[in-house]
Simulated scan of single mutants.
Amino acid sequence: MNTSQQATLYTTLLSIMHVAMVNALVQGGTNVCGGTGFETYPVSYAQRYTTYCGGFIPCTLYRTAYRIEYRLASGVLRCCDGWEEDNGQCIRPVCDPPCQNGGTCVAPNDCNCPAEYEGQICDSDINECSGSHGGCDSICTNTIGSFYCSCPSGYTLNGDGRSCDAVCDPPCQNGGTCVAPNDCNCPAEYEGQICDSDINECSGSHGGCDSICTNTIGSFYCSCPSGYTLNGDGRSCDDKDECLYNNGGCQGSCFNNMGSFTCNCGSGYHLADDNLQCLDAGAEKSDQQPRQL
């Protein structure tokens, strides 16, 4: 195949390819319109070229070549206004001007906007702080395409990014809760600005104890004097009957008293100095005294 034939074949292929692309649209297809438009067609012309005649002498010859030209024609298939061709189909909508800020063109001049923007082409910022205050507990600040929450002085932003927690500095002690800037709500056993002072429960009402009240850090307890035992309520005292166990240690008879007991010996005997043992009456006498335990 000589040079002239190669050129002719090349231009002819270009023309066929172009016509095939134009004819890819189907009459009656979705968003396909017909009307007056430009179409392409091949035009032949004499193309001059230089070669060698007789092997040595340069000479000028002519060959037939083709070029693509355009002409106005009716019945040309094209995508309807607002649509572009994509792989032989008019399925790509056109938004002019184009959608902004990540908006998507879903129909001719119809943009689907992200949540932070509005407007025909998504070029208007939405103020998230209006209406519901952005869900912020306190301060809502609008930004382009977003917003953020913040808190007034004395408060700190919580982990949820919306609610505020009061700040107590120094922090509340002993289980106290910070309810306002530097304001601690203390449990019943403590007081003070940061709940660091123990309350003496034994002052005033004596802690509700019948007898002995002992204050401790953060609490208290009741107890009873000798000869008494603490009741099940943890506050009142009952007399202890010492004679019930081992006869109170008496060698003779044991008599229970409120808070104490007394040992007594039979006729001809008297109590020893320990108020427990009984001695023969002929031995050295000792005054009978109640035995306190």
Rank of each mutant, 00 (worst) to 15 (best):
V43C: 04
G29I: 01
T40L: 08
N31C: 07
G35N: 03
I57M: 12
F38N: 11
C33P: 00
Y49K: 06
R48N: 13
F56A: 14
Q27A: 13
G29Q: 01
R48L: 11
T36D: 06
F56G: 09
T60Q: 15
I57W: 09
R48D: 13
Q47I: 03
G37Y: 00
R48I: 14
I57T: 15
G37S: 04
G55N: 08
Y52F: 13
F38D: 12
G54C: 08
Q47G: 14
T30A: 11
A20Y: 05
P58W: 04
E39G: 14
C53N: 09
T50G: 03
G54A: 07
V43F: 10
G28P: 01
I57R: 09
Y41L: 07
V32L: 02
T30N: 07
G34Y: 03
E39F: 06
R48S: 15
F38E: 11
C59T: 09
A24L: 08
T50N: 04
G55L: 04
F38L: 13
P42F: 00
G54D: 14
L25T: 00
V43P: 01
C33W: 00
Q47Y: 10
V26C: 07
L25N: 00
C33M: 03
V43H: 08
F38K: 06
N23F: 07
E39W: 03
Y45G: 03
I57C: 03
I57N: 11
L25A: 02
Y49F: 13
G55T: 05
T51V: 04
V19S: 09
G35V: 03
L25D: 00
S44P: 11
R48Y: 08
E39D: 12
R48P: 04
G34L: 04
P42E: 01
